[in-house]
Simulated assay, not measured.
Amino acid sequence: MTIIRLGYVAMSMELKNASPSQTMTFAQFQKIDDREAAIRKLEKITLKNLENTHRLLKHNFFNEIHFYRLTSRLIPLANHEALLDWNYMSAIKDKLREVGEYAKKNNMRIDFHPDHFVVLNSDKKDVFINSIKTLKMHYLLLKGLKIDPTHRCVLHVGGKYQETEQSLESFIDNWADVPTGIQKMIMLENDDKSFTLEDTLYLCEKLGIPLVFDYHHHLAHHQNECWEENWDRVVATWRDSPLPIKMHISSPKSVAEFRHHSDYVDVEMFFDFLKEVKGTVPQIDCMIEAKKKDEALFTLMNEIKKREDIEVIDGSSFYIK
């Protein structure tokens, strides 16, 4: 039997007034005449985001959810060119450590998925440098949480420039300039438009990066529909990781908008995948990418509990027989 653990992304639909992504625009920052006061306000917003993250982790613990994606928007304006002298980690280190200790004490797997503007295969130097700055922020946050950064940050391959092969080789060329600590932090995901499972496997196998298989993306964009033929290769990319295999699950919004995520997860579509992989690995952590966040997780678990081919472990985990 294989253990399946479900997680969700960033926001809760049940927990009120708990956004971990409150922000301040640079225009708002500039309207405050006293620069130090403006920075203090930024720090106050960041601390509130961390306090709400702590509340979300407590919500997860109460509901027996062990897998959670942190928002990448914890720190407003963290890497803005006008605020490069702001030591944002200094003001939040105590609260950051408190949040991390809670997650570790309760055996929660937490990670990040930076925004689409992190593009490691870009041929534009400024884009690559800014991508590294953003990844460094994620690295510092994980270190501040006292969590091992290894394989905690999932990325797409990046932009598709002219030819797929050229874009893949650009990733390999740029990879040499990525700091080693950040290299170890990264996982790669197949996407729904540019880089298929096979493309992403090429990079993961060549560079020693774990592959996060997105089943919905594969159905939307593939060279070979039979992903099962490559499942052993996906599993092998995780052989040196301290963490269980991770994948993404979501369902199409509609036939016409197949690439868009639905509010909830189609249980039959999910089990089409699980039936093929059961018994191949001890555990798979499945991140739900659905519009309804934790509500989608609860709804999916309620549907799963009605099935005879599973054995429930707790509020977000089950064995598939």
Rank of each mutant, 00 (worst) to 15 (best):
I209S: 03
S167V: 06
E189Q: 06
V178G: 11
I209V: 14
G208F: 06
D192K: 10
A176W: 03
K193Y: 12
Q183T: 00
F195T: 05
L207T: 08
D192L: 09
N190R: 06
S170N: 14
E198V: 06
H221M: 10
T164E: 04
D192P: 07
P210F: 06
A176V: 14
H221Y: 15
K206I: 08
I172E: 12
E169S: 09
I172S: 10
I182M: 08
L168F: 01
E225C: 00
Q183L: 01
D191Y: 05
H222F: 15
E228L: 07
E189H: 01
K193A: 12
S167I: 03
P179K: 07
V178I: 15
P210C: 07
T180N: 14
L188S: 02
C226F: 14
C226T: 15
G181K: 13
D177C: 12
E229M: 08
F195Y: 07
W175V: 13
L197T: 12
G181E: 15
K184A: 14
H216E: 09
D199M: 05
D191H: 05
T164I: 14
E169I: 05
I172Q: 07
H222I: 01
S170P: 00
G208A: 09
P210W: 03
W175L: 12
N224S: 13
L188Y: 03
E229N: 14
M187H: 02
E169K: 11
D173I: 14
L219D: 09
E205P: 10
Q223D: 15
H216I: 13
L211S: 04
F171V: 05
I182D: 05
T196G: 13
K193I: 10
L219W: 02
L188C: 04
E205H: 07
D177I: 06
A220E: 03
L203D: 01
I209A: 03
E169F: 01
E198P: 03
G208N: 05
H222S: 13
H216Y: 12
C204I: 10
M185Y: 06
F213T: 03
F195W: 02
L201G: 02
L188V: 00
K184E: 15
H218W: 10
K193C: 04
Q223C: 08
T180L: 15
S194P: 00
G208I: 09
L197W: 12
M185N: 07
W227D: 08
